[in-house]
Amino acid sequence: MPLQTLPLPPSELGESPFWHPVEKALYWCDIQGQVVHVWEPDSGRHRQWSMPSEPGCCAPIAGGGLVIGLRNGLYRLDTAKDSGGPTALTCLALLPPEQHDTAVLRLNDGRCDTAGRFWAGSVIAPRTAPNAALWCLQADASSATGYSLRHMAGDNFTANGLAFSPDNRTMYWSNTPEHRIDQFDFEVTTGAITNRRPWVQFDRKVEGQPYGGRPDGAAVDVEGNYWVAMYEGACVLQLSPAGEVLQRIAVPVQCPTMVCFGGKDLRTLFITSARAGRPAQEQQAATPAGSMFSLQAGVGGLPVNFFALVNRK
């Protein structure tokens, strides 16, 4: 089946899509639009929640609702509420201001691991120093708040591409402006990450030469291949575990932003994109920038992981 444009409003900066297997619904964030969306393909129902700041990433919570990374911290969204705002949000953890200056930093790409931890990277603007970081939130019954938040890595400008290998031994994390995807050794029992090393380095933009884009959001399939949206490259790449390009999928917008696997068999690839900052001709095209797409991937993806809330007995 060819690539399909979905009947949804364009996002200013679509990100963090995931397929909810129980609700049979697609969730995603519009970061610049400050909205979280959900769409049920079978019924066509579309809902949204307004956020008080940019929702960089989201993931489902075991028991209902979402965990969301906003500019200053991690929150729980009650999706039973009809709209966003203070009554629908509960703060789980604030980012420490001495390490996360909200004047220049906000949360960006993130997801949960199979142990129920929520990982979220940040982005710095302007890019004066590589002070973007990777944070990990997990339930902690010994903490007064019920949750602990750890700083896991740094030396980044725009954290993206967070994903885990099927065997839970490797974590991927990209630095988009540097055109690089890194790997870490991952220990799922403790959440420890070690041995950071470059995995794939893409060519930077050179005036007058073809440009393939830079690595944005990603997802991993059951065979361990890494599917990454190439921002400004008008394509999605499927990379082997060795970093080889297995497939290049063209998309009809210049800036795809992230992918996820969904549908009943997890073989549908959903692709978000961005319209913020794009030229008028892209925003007003027949397929406008910010559209969302789907296609049959030919391979199944890993299911979304749920955030584990604290269990106080």
Rank of each mutant, 00 (worst) to 15 (best):
A125N: 14
A125M: 11
R127N: 02
A129V: 05
P130T: 10
P130V: 04
N131E: 05
A132D: 08
A133G: 04
L134T: 05
W135I: 04
W135Y: 12
L137T: 12
A139M: 09
A139W: 04
D140H: 09
D140P: 06
D140R: 04
D140G: 02
A141N: 09
A141F: 07
S142R: 09
S142I: 00
S142D: 13
S143L: 07
T145F: 06
T145H: 07
G146M: 09
Y147T: 11
S148A: 11
R150A: 15
R150T: 12
R150W: 06
R150Q: 13
H151Q: 12
H151I: 01
M152T: 09
M152V: 11
A153V: 09
A153S: 14
D155R: 10
N156C: 15
N156R: 11
N156A: 15
F157K: 01
F157E: 08
F157L: 15
T158N: 06
A159T: 15
N160L: 08
N160I: 07
N160F: 04
G161S: 15
F164T: 02
S165T: 15
P166E: 06
D167F: 06
N168T: 03
N168E: 15
R169T: 13
W173C: 09
S174N: 14
S174G: 11
S174E: 03
N175S: 13
T176F: 09
E178I: 00
E178S: 12
E178P: 01
E178C: 07
E178V: 04
H179F: 08
H179A: 10
I181T: 05
Q183H: 08
Q183D: 00
F184H: 12
F184K: 03
F184G: 03
F184R: 02
D185V: 01
D185S: 01
F186V: 04
E187L: 05
V188I: 13
T189N: 12
T189L: 14
G191V: 08
G191Y: 02
T194F: 02
T194G: 02
T194D: 08
N195H: 12
R197Y: 02
R197S: 01
R197I: 02
R197E: 04
P198M: 00
P198E: 13
W199N: 03
V200E: 09
V200C: 03
Q201V: 03
F202A: 11
F202K: 11
